[in-house]
Design a binder for these strands. Structure first.
Length: 569
RNA sequence: GCGGAUGUAGUCUAGCGGUUAGGACUGAGGCUUCCCAAGCCUUAAGCCCGGGUUCGAAUCCCGGCAUCCGCACCA
C-alpha cells in the first residue's frame, strides 16, 4: 500500500492537489485543486450526475454556502454541532465538559452551558490529569460564523456544514416542481465548511470540502424502489453493526433478513458501490459498515458508511442514511412553512367534526383590537374540552389571561369532506465526500516500481484521456499530430500533445498522471494513415487508423479495455 | 487542543557557527530524429515566517505557521 506522503507528493508535483495559500505558510485543512485535480474532480461530478440526475431522475439544485442562523437553529447544528470545552488552569489540557460530567447526569451532552458549569462546580470536578482547577466551559462550534450585512442591521449567518439543508428547506419548491409526486429526489454538488479542531490526513479532513449529496423524499410507509427488482441479486460487502467480519450478501436477502432497513436504502448502497467501482475504487478494498446505535445521529434509523481501505486505514467515502422525517419536520416547526406532501385517499371521506366557531360580532365590542387574536385562539380549542353548558372559556392571548363569555362562540357540528391527508416525507440520504473519493482513486491507482510511477486511473476518472505524440518533431509528423490533437479536443475529450524529449519520457509523463492510452505518429503514418496506440498498463501497442481515433477517444471515457480495442483493430 | 518529531529549488537530499548553500531527479531551450524516464550543451529554481544570541546563523535559542506520529475530537 502506498504511503500517503508518496501520493500527496505526486499530487503536488503533477498538479492534482496543492496546499492552499502556500506562499503565506499554508492553512491546515485547505487545499487547492490544480489543473489535473480540477479536471478529475469534474469527471467524478459528471459521472455522479449521469447516475443520479440522468439515470435516476433526481433534480439538481444549487443553494448558497451562506445561510442565516435560523436554518441551523432548526437543523440542530447550532446546538448539536457545538462542543463545550473546559481547560485546566494548571496544565492547560482541554477536555470536553460533557465527558467530565459523565456519571453525574443521565445525559450530560443534552445540558446547557450554565447547567454543565453548575454541575461541574457542585461536584468539585477537577482536572483528571493533574487535579488542577478548571476554567469555565467555553463553547466551540464547528460552524464558521459570519455576519450577513453591515452594522446593527446585520444578521447572524453561518457557512453551511453540509449541503443537505438547502434541499430540506426547499422541499415545498421541489415537491411542487415535481408536480406533487413522491418519491422525489434532489441533489446538490458544492462545498461546505467545518472549523475542524485539528485537520489531518491531507484531504481526508478539510475545513472546506466538497460534497455530492442526494436527498430522496419518500412516503414514510413506502420505502420500496422501482429499479430494485433489477438489482436484487447483486451482492454487497457488508459489515453489520456488531459483526466482526464482512459478509457478502445479495440485496434482496439483506433487506429480507432485516440487515438493511429498506429497499431504497439498499438500492442506493448498490448504486454507490457501482459508482465507486466504475470510477476505480478497488472493490477488494471497499466495504459498507453499519453505524452502531450509539454512533448514529439521534434522528437516523439506519446508516451505512461506504468505506475504502487507504494508506490512512478505513476511510468513509459515502454515507447512506435513513434520516426519517427529522430534518423536514424541524424546518416545518421552526419556519411554519408547509413542508408536507399530500396523500389523496382512494375516495374522499366524509367526517363529522366538531368545531368552536367564534362570533366576531360579539368579540369585537368586548376585546376591541385583540378580537382577531382571541378568535384565532378560540378556534384552536379542542371542542371536546368544552362542555355544552360552559358559560365561559379561559384563554391566554399574547401572555394575557382572558375570560371569553359563551355568547362569543358556538360549538358546531359539521360534515366535512376530506379528500386526503398531509404528511411529512421521510428522507433517504446518500452523501458523498468528493475530495475523499478523489484521494481514494489516487491511492488505489498508485503503483511504483523502481521509481517508475504509474497511476492506473480508470478512463472515467483520468484527467487526460489520450496522449498524442509525433515520434519526431519534423517531416510533418508534428503538424499532423497537432491536427489530431485538435480534432479530439473538439469532441470535448481531454487529450495532451507532447513533442519534447524522448518518446519514452513522454510515455512516462502520461503514465504518471494516469492517462490510459497514447497514440504516436511515425513514418508509417505518412504512408498508411495509421498510428500506434499504446496501453498504459502493459505498454503494448496496436496500430489503428487515424479515422478511428475520435471514436476510440470517446470510448476511453466509458472505461473501454485495451483488449476490446485490440479485438476490433 | 495536548505531547513528540520534522521543516534547504517542483521532488528527494548534502550541510552540523565562518568563502558565492552542493548534488540528483524534474522543468525550460537546443543538439540528437529516436517507440518506452538514453546521451550531450545551455538554463531556471531553494534555507517556512518573525524575533533573539553572535563579529558572523540554513546551523544555536524563543515565538508563530505548516507537516508527520501518538492522544483527544470527528453527523
Amino acid at each position: 500500500m502506498p504511503e500517503p506522503s508518496e501520493i500527496l507528493s505526486l499530487a503536488k508535483r503533477r498538479g492534482f492537489l496543492w496546499p492552499a495559500y502556500e506562499i503565506y505558510g499554508g492553512v491546515a485543512g485547505l487545499f487547492d485543486y490544480g489543473p489535473l485535480g480540477a479536471e478529475m474532480k469534474r469527471n467524478i461530478e459528471d459521472y455522479w450526475r449521469q447516475l443520479y440526475v440522468r439515470q435516476e431522475g433526481f433534480l439538481e439544485i444549487t443553494c448558497p454556502l451562506l445561510a442565516p442562523k435560523e436554518v441551523f437553529e432548526a437543523s440542530g447544528h447550532l446546538k448539536e454541532f457545538t462542543d463545550l470545552v473546559v481547560q485546566c488552569d494548571a496544565c492547560s489540557t482541554s477536555f470536553r465538559a460533557d465527558h467530565l460530567a459523565e456519571g453525574l447526569h443521565e445525559q450530560p451532552s443534552r445540558l446547557s452551558k450554565d447547567e454543565l458549569c453548575m454541575l461541574l462546580n457542585d461536584n468539585n470536578v477537577v482536572c483528571p490529569e493533574c487535579g488542577g482547577h478548571l476554567c469555565e466551559p467555553a463553547t466551540f462550534n464547528l460552524m464558521f460564523k459570519t455576519a450577513i450585512g453591515a452594522g446593527a442591521g446585520g444578521r447572524d449567518g453561518y457557512m453551511r456544514p453540509e449541503t443537505a439543508q438547502g434541499m430540506f428547506v426547499n422541499f415545498n419548491m421541489i415537491y411542487r416542481y415535481a408536480r406533487e409526486k413522491l418519491p422525489v429526489g434532489a441533489v446538490q454538488i458544492g462545498s461546505s465548511m467545518r472549523n475542524e479542531i485539528s485537520p489531518r490526513q491531507g484531504v481526508i479532513r478539510l475545513r472546506e470540502f466538497n460534497m455530492m449529496e442526494a436527498e430522496l423524499f419518500v412516503h414514510p410507509d413506502d420505502k420500496s424502489w422501482p429499479n430494485f427488482a433489477n438489482v436484487k441479486d447483486e451482492k454487497l460487502k457488508l459489515l453489520p453493526d456488531g459483526g466482526k467480519d464482512t459478509v457478502t450478501v445479495a440485496l434482496e436477502k439483506a433487506v429480507g433478513d432485516g440487515m438493511i432497513l429498506n429497499e431504497t436504502l439498499a438500492y442506493f448502497m448498490w448504486l454507490t458501490w457501482k459508482f465507486l467501482s466504475d470510477l476505480g475504487v478497488d472493490p477488494d478494498r471497499m466495504r459498507f459498515r453499519q453505524h452502531a446505535r450509539t454512533e448514529m445521529a439521534h434522528y437516523a434509523s439506519d446508516c451505512w458508511d461506504c468505506e475504502a481501505l487507504l494508506g490512512y486505514g478505513w476511510v468513509e467515502l459515502v454515507g447512506v442514511a435513513d434520516r426519517g422525517c427529522y430534518d423536514v419536520s424541524a424546518h416545518l416547526d421552526h419556519s411554519g412553512a408547509d413542508l408536507t406532501a399530500f396523500e389523496r385517499f382512494d375516495s374522499p371521506k366524509m367526517l363529522t367534526v366538531d368545531r368552536i366557531q367564534p362570533d366576531l360580532s360579539k368579540l369585537g365590542p368586548i376585546f376591541k383590537g385583540k378580537a382577531r387574536a382571541v378568535a384565532d385562539k378560540l378556534a384552536e380549542v379542542p371542542p371536546d374540552s368544552v362542555p355544552d353548558d360552559r358559560s365561559e372559556i379561559e384563554l391566554e392571548v399574547d401572555g394575557e389571561r382572558l375570560k371569553v363569555p359563551s355568547e362569543c362562540f358556538r360549538k358546531v357540528r359539521r360534515e366535512e369532506k376530506v379528500s386526503g391527508r398531509k404528511f411529512v416525507p421521510h428522507v433517504i440520504e446518500p452523501s458523498y465526500g468528493l475530495d475523499r473519493i478523489l484521494y481514494a482513486l489516487l491511492d488505489h491507482a498508485y503503483g511504483s516500481k523502481e521509481d517508475y510511477v504509474r497511476l492506473r486511473l480508470s478512463g472515467k476518472a483520468s484527467p487526460v484521456k489520450l496522449g498524442v505524440f509525433p515520434l519526431v518533431g519534423k517531416d510533418g509528423l508534428d503538424t499532423l499530430a497537432l491536427e489530431i490533437h485538435r480534432r479530439i479536443s473538439s469532441l470535448g475529450v481531454a487529450c495532451y500533445y507532447d513533442d519534447s524529449g524522448s518518446i519514452g519520457r513522454r510515455y512516462a509523463r502520461m503514465d504518471e498522471i494516469g492517462t490510459p492510452f497514447c497514440v504516436t505518429l511515425d513514418y508509417d503514418t505518412l504512408k498508411d494513415d495509421t498510428v500506434t496506440l499504446r496501453d498504459r498498463d502493459t505498454a503494448e501497442q496496436i496500430r489503428v487508423k487515424i479515422d478511428r481515433l475520435p471514436e476510440i477517444a470517446l470510448k476511453i471515457q466509458e472505461n473501454i479495455a485495451f483488449e476490446d480495442l485490440r479485438r476490433h483493430s
